[in-house]
Design a protein around this nucleic acid. Sequence first.
DNA 1: CACTAAAGCGGAGGCGCCTCCGTTTATTTA
DNA 2: TAAATAAACGGAGGCGCCTCCGCTTTAGTG
Lengths: 221, 221
Amino acid sequence: MGADPHGFKPHIARVEKKLTEQPSATDEKPEAPAPRPLRVDAQRNRDKLVEVAAQAFAADGVDASLEEIAKRAGVGIGTLYRHFPTREHLVEVVYRREVEGLCHAAEELARDHPADAALELWMQRFVDYIATKRGLATSLRLLLTTNSTLFSDTSGRVSGAMRGLVEAAAASGKIRADVDASDVMHALGGIYSAPNTPDWRERSGRLVKLLMDGLRFGARG
Amino acid sequence: MGADPHGFKPHIARVEKKLTEQPSATDEKPEAPAPRPLRVDAQRNRDKLVEVAAQAFAADGVDASLEEIAKRAGVGIGTLYRHFPTREHLVEVVYRREVEGLCHAAEELARDHPADAALELWMQRFVDYIATKRGLATSLRLLLTTNSTLFSDTSGRVSGAMRGLVEAAAASGKIRADVDASDVMHALGGIYSAPNTPDWRERSGRLVKLLMDGLRFGARG
DNA sequence: CACTAAAGCGGAGGCGCCTCCGTTTATTTA
DNA sequence: TAAATAAACGGAGGCGCCTCCGCTTTAGTG
């Protein structure tokens, strides 16, 4: 995006296909007839593709070239399309992975740090997450309105993770006890809706610090 | 869409550009410094493009080939892109034109027919409009969330036109007087949200007739 | 009418999308 | 271990997107 003077930059939404059928990353429903667990090479390629795609989308936005992604993952374009029949499939998987990572980070941070530090670090991580989300903005907006499962899924998980951290911090006395997790989430809303200036990241960082000061103020600990 | 086995069918939303700057079909703001009224040949080409595009979108959906549209309009692809720098611009103009037509039809029908017939005919026309809107579904959804002016503009105009017809019919005694235009609009909602079956059109036609029977029931006239 | 600047035109060219199918490879079976 | 087979691979090919810029047409001006 920028180093691509002749690039292919369509500007339209064209999504008609297959959005009903979910990729379903963590599908362990007891009813599933175990659809055969992907050959090891296939799984390896798939993972590599997702990883490379995540980088590419972060760097170039959703318009990143799929052919380039395939190449960088060391597979043919055909392989990419077999795993992800549409661009959305790939975007969705990358996004879900991002959410997964964010929730996982919450557990990890909670284990390795004092409750208030864990919360603060997590919020900084949340800023990165939002940054990605903004990169994918248009696609995501469409995906989230088309595919309501995705929306409820992810927003539920994220706010759940945050709730856990806030409550733990409150319980440990590291932050004041009279706040609700949803209030904190609401405060973070400012990050999301803030204008897309170049200094957005620093601003957001400061917002998080400020918020933490507020949370620590008058804490028991 | 179908007669295009090797066609270019991306499936992603890529809209970043120029959606702020409105095409503004009917821009007559007193502040505008009159941006020079388009050379006659240019205007002719532009009109032709919009007309052809309207047909193409109706026939093939928003994925209709822009090169094909340019060709059928008898201009080069470059001309199309000069007038409509992105596909959305074209979609938006076509859509606004559709809305315009619908509102204009309301006046015309009101002039040429008894009030109740005018309303019924207009509602049948409304079915066509919705059909178009469905054809453009994904693009429109994105456009309407991105560009809130477009939304308020058009929905306001359409419901205004309908209100006029309903009130005229009620005043003339051709339909019962105890209904509100917004109720009728609400009833028509069924058309929009109905599943996209092949017999959708007939169903909608019957819905309109049914609705008219309900409206005529117990009328003074 | 001749001239000229500005406006408009249009298509070649370069790139990305995505399908199709012959080839390669992992896994199962003998 | 070898043969058989299903799964996966990958890239050529065909098509649409969109920019760029030399050529054409229009609308003024003297």
